[in-house]
Every structure is written in C-alpha cells, then in structure tokens.
Design a binder for these strands. Sequence first.
RNA 1: GCCGCGGUGGCGGAAUUGGUAGACGCGACGGACUUAAAAUCCGUUGGUGGUAACAUCAUGAGGGUUCGAUUCCCUCCCGCGGCACCA
Length: 826
Amino acid sequence: MPPIYNHKEIEAKWRKRWQEEKIYRPDLDQPGRKFYNLMMFPYPSAEGLHVGNMYAFAHADAYGRFQRLRGYNVFEPIGLDGFGIHSENYAIKIKEHIKDVSVRTEKHFYEQLRTIGNGYDWSRTVETYKPAYYRWTQWLFLKMHERGLAYRKAASVNWCPSCKTVLSDEQVISGACERCGALTDKRQMEQWFWRITAYADRLLKNLDALDWTEEVKTIQRNWIGRSEGTLVKFSIFNPSSSLGTSFQFSNNNKFSLSNAQKLDELEVFTTRPDTLFGCTYLVVSPEHPLLKAGAAAIENLSAVEEYVAVSKRKTEAERTDASKKKTGVRLAGLAAVNPVNGEPLPIFAADYVLAGYGTGAIMAVPAHDERDYAFARQYDLPMRLVVKSASQAAGQADCFTGEGVNIDSGFLDGLNTRAAIKKMNSWLAEKGLGKVEVNYKLRDWCVSRQRYWGPPIPMVNCGQCGWVPVPESQLPILLPAMDDFLPDGSGKGPLNKIAKFVNTVCPVCGGPAARETDVSDPFVDSSWYFLRYLCTDYTDRALDKERLKKWMPVDMYIGGKEHSVLHLLYSRFVTMVMHELGYAPEPEPYRRFRAHGLLIKDGAKISKSKGNIVNPDEYIAEYGADAVRLYLLFLGEMRLGGDWRDDGMNGMHRFVKRVYRLLDQADPSASDRAANDRILSRTIKGVADDLESLKFNTAIAKLMILVNHFEKNGLAVDQLRIFSLLLSPFAPFLAEEIWSQTGTTSSIFQARWPEYDPALIKDDIINLVVQINGKLRATLAVSAEIGETEAKEAALQSERVKKWLADREIVKTIFVPGKLLNIVVK
RNA sequence: GCCGCGGUGGCGGAAUUGGUAGACGCGACGGACUUAAAAUCCGUUGGUGGUAACAUCAUGAGGGUUCGAUUCCCUCCCGCGGCACCA
C-alpha cells in the first residue's frame, strides 16, 4: 500500500473516471428527487480564477455533494459570464482584442474549474458571449418589448466617464462605477429601459416568503424603498402685489393674495400629510415643469434661470451631498395656497429636491423635516410647530421629525400622528385635493450600453415606423468583428462605426432603417442563465417549458452579497416575467439563497488592486485540490467569510496525509469496535447537521476529531469506508480513493449518506457540572439519568465540594438534568 | 445620519433554548527519530500567582437582569457592508 498520497495521480484518475461514467450528468427529463444546486458563474476579468472564486465554489459544491449522497438527483452546472464590461476592460488593459482574450480565459477558467473537483455537469455549460446563448438574450429583449416592458426614453442617466457608457442605478456604488470605480455623472440621454418598477410591489412582497439570507433581503427591501404617502394638490396664484425677489417676508411673514389670479396646480408628494398645517412654503426641483409653465408670471426669471443653470453644472455628487449648504431661489410672482387654512405660501426652486422622486415637488414643513429646517434657517423662512412629542412635554427641539400629537392643526388637534395622517388623507380625498400613493425608490433598469462586447440590442429605427423590433426569425444579430472596439464616449456604441451593420431594412415597411448600435447590459446576460442551463440541448428555443417545470426553482443558490441589488434583483424580475409568459413554473427563481462572506488576506479583500492575490493553481499543484478545498471550507463560517493565511495550508496537507494513512491502519483486531461505532454515529449526525446549516468549518473539525480517535484506537475497514463517505463532500478525490481501496467498485457519489444509530448518540455517563454560587467547583461522572436528589447527594460527598461548602448554609440548589447542579450558599 | 453584520488566546476560529469559555486547526516552545534537514511522532501552550494541587482574572468598554451571561437588556467605542437631501 502506498504510504504517500500522490494527489496529482489520484485526482487525474478520478477526474477521468467521473467524466467517463457521467456521474454528474443527471437526466434532465427524469428528475426524480431533483436538486438544482446553483453557484454564481464567474466573469473573466483576469487571466484566471482567483482563490476567492474557489472559496465560493468549494462551499457550494460541498453542499451539492451532500445532497447527492442524500439521494437527490443533483444538477450542478457551470458557465462563463464572459460578455460585458468586466471582461472587455481587462482586454483593454492588457491591450489585446477581447475576442482573443476570451478564447484564452475560457480555456484557463474551465481548466481551473475542472481541477477543483466540483461535480459539474460539463455537458451543459453556457458562455454568454457565444451566439448560441446571446441569440436568446436578444430573444429575451424582444419578449420584454412585446410585453411593453422594454422601452426607450430620454432621461437623466448615470454616465461612467472611464467606461464611456451609461450605467443603471444599481451599478453606481456610492457615486462610483461598479466596474472601474470611477466617479459617475449624470447625462440627459435617450436609452433603453426595462420596466422593473412595474414589479416593485411583487419584488418586495415575495421577499417575505423566500428562504434567503436575511441581510440580502433587507438590502433589497431598502433598495426598492417603498414609501406610503399622499399626493397633495396646491393651487398656484399670481399674487397682485409684487413681492420682489428677496427671501424676506414683509409684515410678519405674511403676504396678501387679494386679486390673485389662479394660474396652475402643483402636486407634491409627502409621507407626512399630518404636518400640512405646518407647511410654510413649497419647493420644486430645478427640473420641474412649473419653471417653464409659469415662466411668464415669474418676476425674477433671469435669477431663476441662472440658478437652474448653476444646478445643472454641478456634478451628481455635489448635488446630492446632504451635508452641503442648501441653496435655492424664490419664484417671485408665484404663490401657492395651503388648502387646509387658505394661507399663501411662497414657492422656491431648490436642488435639494430631487426631480426623479415623487412629483419633483414638496411641501416644506421646516418644524418637522430636517432638510426643510436647514433650508428655512438658511433663508430665514417661517416655521410652525404642529406636532408635539407625546413623551416629553417640554424642551422640544426646533425640528421634531418623530411621531407625536398634533397641535395648532385645526381639525387634527389632539390626534396622534397615525390618526392625523388618516384624517388628513380622508379630508383631502373628500375635497378632491389629495390621494394616497405609494412611491418606490426603485427606478427602471437602464439596459443599453455604449460598448462593444455584448449582445446587440435587437431593435431597428425606421424613419417611417419608428423603433421596430427585429423579428425573432432574424436572431441572432451577430456581433460583427471589429478591430477598434474601444468605446469612444460619443454616446453611441462602437458598432455605430460599422455602416454595414447599421444600415438595414425596416422589418415592417421594408424601407431603409438603422440598427440599434448599443449592446445590452451584461447583467441582462446573467439575469436568465440559470434557466438556460436547463435547456442547452434545445437549439430552436430559448427555454423549454416542460424542462423548467421539472427543475425550477433553484433549490440552493450560493453566491456573494455584492449582487444583492444587481443580479439577484434583476434575475428575480426576469423570472417573474418568464413566469407570466408561461416559461418559469414559479415567479421566484431561487428557493434558497445563502450569501458567503469575503475571503480576506492581510486584512483586505483579495484583489489585484490590493496586491494580495492568491493564485489557487499553485496551491492545488503543490498540496492537491482536496487540501485546498478543505482549507477554504475550514477557514470559518461561510456566511462571515474567511481569512486566508499561506501557512494554514500546511495543516490541511498534514490532515490529508494522515487520512490517507488510515488505509494502512485499518485493522479490525486492533480496534475497539464499540467505542468507534459510538463516535462514528455522533460524527455522522454532527457532520450532517453542520452541512445542512452550511457550517462546513465545524463539520471538518468533527472529522478531525474522528481521525484523531482512529489514530489512537485503530479502526476496521468498514468504519474507514463510512468515514470516507463523511469526508467526500469536502475532499472528493481522497474520499473516492479510500472508498475504492476499501473494496467498492462504484463511485462513492453513487452511494448513500450513512445512517447512524440513535442509541449510540446518547451518553450513559455524563460529566455533571457542580457549581457553587455559579462557579465551577467540580465535575462528577454520573449516570445521565441522575435526578436532583441523587445528584445533590453525590455532590455533597465530593471532597472538592465539601471544601467549598465548609459550614456555609445552602440557600437553594439549581439542577439542570443531564448538565449541571448549582449550589447557592450564603 | 439611518439600516445590517461583526468584535473571543500570538493567529484563524469553537461554544444547542443563558449552564464546564477557548473545540478543531495554525504558529510557537520542548522532546523522539535522523550524520543533518524535510517529513513524521510525543508533550506543553489565554493572563497573573504558585514547585504543585490549586487560586484568580479574562469573550471591545461600562452598567443591569440572573443561582449562573460570549449568549438577554441599556449606554457607549471600534471594524466591515448597504443606503444616503427619496420628502
């Protein structure tokens, strides 16, 4: 028997055998007890996978292998998210053509993914940059368009000056581009959008029932940002007296509306209609239509226009910096009327009000909103307190944003905030001045990109017919080859430079037309890949309904939480639409989702920019895939991430060698069968429990304890065989090798997880903890069934206990059966 | 600022519903084997005091509840992540 574990030889042998015997290729038409085990497919933004990718994949695969042993028919696919800015930026950086780079990275990524020993079904890979895939990504676009969910509009969109393309709101992380980290800006452009906001309520509501990492659900909830409020209509007048352009009010902050002429109506959105009595002015955003509609009446138009121009010139970051001084300009010549008390209200334009949320206009209540308060202080505007804190009568702050009781509020006086909101809403509704509305922070998904490396958007612009979808039969629209694929920042995609591509005929009228030259967001590619995995054998359709019915939803999805509001939100939206179209059997794609934490090294996330990259290939070559897997799984709880230390690998290498050596030690005559069976039963249960709750680290610790025990006490061959089953989710090659060397012929992954004997789990003799006043003073080996009286007797017999009790009076004793006895003394 | 997750030996990390804090591993130290090294094996390893038995302190800080708190409550501090003028 070879004493040395030759990982290279053994891994190659099993990799080949698994491939030949197709043990990871379930028959998708005969799902049986199916288990769809999904992990986030990688995107090549470097030459190869880094150890952080391996971290996620090793966990997901160990879980999948466990389900396999549990008797599930596991489908575990993999692919490459190779289209997109991430891959393209890498090619640009190394000054090569993306087409060449993608050929190379595909080869390397797949080689690496094969070496780590995951149970992938290699017959069903998807690569998003191949026509066989992106043909259907384009089909998805057409379906969205057909349902009215893909549309084009001019809007203020995010622009990355470095990537030279627009981005969706989700791809701007704290004001910076998700891909390159450059600060983004806003540009007014016409773009393609997907109407994810139409699903905002469902995306929010369904979260409650999903078995997902709670943290990710919270992030999604906050991103969707539902808020219930009221739309209130204010009448706009042109007051007779000229008010000047100063912010000062004359005559005790009052001005007259006599002879005023009603000009318009202004609608605002508020979540606190109960504070309407405290409203002392209105504010519109600099983009608000009132500025144009009311221009004739605005007396200080040039000052207003100047303010708007200044606002426009500000960067997004400057405009939305909440800590900066608030600015604004009074719309002289215009005034509104507070519908509850008929008081005239001045109107301002200020860029602290966002154009894109609510109606782009607000009612300002400086006494009950911090932003209004700051603005009112800045411009010396009146404030009126109308809500009093219910708890503290005196000492109220100038600005109170909490809930309380209404005062000086006419018909709302004495009501608490909730009741006041209700009453105000019905009052406004009665008068036709307001209605309850729900607003979401979520905006529609901007999906067009002015880049090369993506699926061309299948739309054609005809002079006669306008925007027309490309007929399904003409798909795919192949991405044409081009040497200079770099984005130029013109606001049009590089494809725009290829006349042959652009010029086409209108599918409707046959006249000359121009193709859309933007490509779609890479997140569109990944929004449906898990559906395509199941249908790669269908070349005539994107998705097969029967197939999806058999396998969707995904049973377990493990991935990073950085995708909380990106991929995980987009793919839920797309699946909802696919469900409505009858493709997906359920509106939600992932039954369970668990986020893993980050892999850290030297106190920082492993990344190229930090210079702490760990190349997994070297470690796999030196120590073997199993040792690397075990090490990654042992680092800590998956949810919390791990801390990579180079020297930690030694320990796992040692463990692998020790496990292999058990083959030499297996000898029934030398072993205490009963003791081994007891610890085996416990380990079977413990490891299964840990795996189910994704605590891979403690599962491995239990295996180590078992190995320590075997080394000391010897073991029988059948016990070693059971041990190999327990080890197999973590170290598949090593486990398979031991399995085969203990007289089995079929793969360990066709075997079943071992049963344990419940009778062996229980202890007959326990260590009863004896405390005196809560401090541990002795432990007694007693029967597990011992009762309080006996336990007390036994404890009082103990010399150690006696010493501590001396002649102190026992006040009481606390007995926890099977665990502890606490004697309380004076 | 708001929301979420964390803070435990030299290090990574364990601790069912509150019940022996530090499992398991790394590293370190001592020893065995070896001409030597690697590998392997054995032992020790939270701090302080003590030859030892043992005592005592200790889970970010400070309070509290409890017979008993890493675990529950309150007030803070620090790290990471999300949102951030969303009315």
